[in-house]
């Protein structure tokens, strides 16, 4: 398979085939809700939709999001080659209705019609020591992007200081403010530290973890579990209809901060958590969730 075709298949899978770990946690959420409630019906519809989209190879959601790629490549790889392959695959995926045209110029208001634009798709490049290429793709919906938020600690309105206790408070506030608007139940990515830009970036990179995959740092792992349990007490429920599942999982990442700053970025991913990974080694392409 040619590189560009491998990318096209990666995009197709991301848009139409929800990862099994996400589907499994949605199934659990369905089983938890009481019969004949709006929440139960929403989960039934979601699960049926996921199966249909996979079978028909059509987008799970019509908002196929913004494309964010992370590429780790071995020495000797050329960024230009990957970029060209991605651009071809993006245009072709749009032609085949795997993607909706979602790239708009903020000055002219014009939609490019093919998902290309300045920094679109966005590609994070990283060279590594392994002899294989790893490509990770996130399709990030616009509605859920709109409910993300960033806090600067201390945050006096909530009496939130510069420690995990303070972080806990602003995360509860962020999820409360999001209500059902990010297509709840969402997955929450949290970035601690860094500058304003790298803080958001770290919060989003958390979305490459699988549901239930805890942080390797035991303190942060416990913190994730505590937040997951507490956020589900909010009873916002699927679509904000009320219910037992408000978030599917919580992932926290940390990085060094400047002594004067303490940013907490909260990224919200809709229930249609679309991520896929592709590994290329010796010309062989392998897809993973």
């Amino acid at each position: 398979m040619q590189l560009k075709e491998a990318f096209l298949e990666l995009i197709r899978r991301a848009a139409t085939d929800l990862p099994p770990d996400v589907e499994a946690v949605l199934q659990k959420a369905y089983e938890k809700e009481d019969d004949n409630t709006p929440a139960k019906n929403v989960f039934a519809t979601i699960l049926e939709n996921v199966k249909l989209a996979r079978k028909q190879s059509t987008p799970i959601c019509q908002d196929t999001g913004s494309l964010v790629f992370y590429i780790d490549y071995p020495e000797g790889g050329k960024e230009r080659d990957y970029r060209q392959a991605i651009e071809w695959a993006t245009v072709e995926a749009t032609n085949r209705q795997y993607l909706r045209p979602n790239s708009v110029d903020p000055v002219t208001g014009k939609n490019s019609g093919n998902n290309l634009g300045v920094n679109a798709p966005y590609i994070h490049f990283h060279q590594w020591d392994r002899d294989e290429v790893r490509v990770r793709l996130l399709l990030k919906g616009g509605g859920s992007e709109n409910v993300g938020s960033q806090y600067k600690l201390p945050h006096p309105p909530l009496n939130a200081g510069r420690d995990l206790k303070g972080v806990r408070k602003v995360v509860i506030d962020a999820v409360k403010n999001a209500q059902g608007l990010g297509c709840a139940p969402g997955t929450i990515g949290i970035g601690l530290g860094g500058g304003r830009d790298t803080s958001y970036s770290l919060s989003k990179e958390q979305f490459f973890r699988k549901i239930g995959q805890r942080n390797q740092d035991p303190e942060l792992a416990r913190f994730e579990e505590q937040l997951l349990e507490e956020l589900n007490q909010l009873e916002i429920g699927p679509m904000g209809f009320g219910g037992k599942t408000t978030v599917l999982d919580v992932f926290v990442g940390k990085q060094a901060r400047h002594p004067a700053t303490y940013y907490v970025s909260v990224s919200y991913n809709c229930w249609a958590f679309r991520r896929k990974t592709m590994t290329i080694k010796n010309g062989e392409v392998r897809y993973d969730d």
Partner: peptide
């Protein structure tokens, strides 16, 4: 009326 956000394929069907 609230539809199920994200259920794009099902609703199209």
């Amino acid at each position: 009326f609230h539809a199920v956000g994200g259920a794009g394929t099902l609703i199209a069907n």
